[in-house]
Amino acid sequence: MSEVSDGPGRDEEAIVTAAEYALNLLPPDEREAARRRAEVDGRFRRLVAEWTEDFARLADEVEPVAPPPRLRKALGRFARQEARRGRGPRARRRGAAVLGWLAGGIAAAASALVILSVALPVVAPPYSGPLYEAELTSETSETRVTARFDPRDGVLALDRGQLSAPPGRALQLWLLPEGADAPVSLGLLPEATQIRLQLPQDLGAEVPGGLLEISEEPPGGSPTGGPTGAVLAVGEVEES
């Protein structure tokens, strides 16, 4: 006589759990259980959606506060980098990422013979134009390579930090100019940690806004004109 059917009780339980889930009040294990339940239980999922919608109206009373401008800049950069990855095969996981570049890469690489050299110190005239920098990082490791580019002398200076080639392999640097579909080889990286590359003028003009990448390749460099091995680090060149 005490309990009526367990129908309404269960109903109430679903309603309340859905609300706790929408409010983010559940402890981690219950939260995970609720998440799984929402996947398979349409009624529960609807309850969560309804609660979420209802609670969101409480945010009507929250005053908008302009975020600092740097955040917009950071998100713009993030999206540009991501959008580029999405356009090419890099939308997929790194390892297979470079294959699609092979098609367009050959012609580009032919025009991209680059001489690695130690640039002579330049007595620079007063210069107020922009300088550029990039930080090349990896999604899967702590790799961090910094690059600076000075358009006055066309020197790209790299500090490769801890990045070294896998045994029997070489590191090759690539530039994917803004709007381009295939990367251009900037040459193989020498052993040194601090590296200075003298870029020809036409290539130097493509550096700002471009994407720098380092891939691991056979000892003589990529045989195809495009990256063939794993991309170990990537970063966008920005005004510094």
Binding site: P64, A66, P67, R72, G76, A79, R80, A83, G86, R87
Partner: peptide
């Protein structure tokens, strides 16, 4: 993956979400 739309969405809603 429309970056312009992403920034427009940010401009329209960023302050509220902030």
């Amino acid at each position: 993956r429309d970056r312009g739309a992403f920034l427009a969405l940010y401009d329209a809603t960023g302050a509220k979400l902030h």
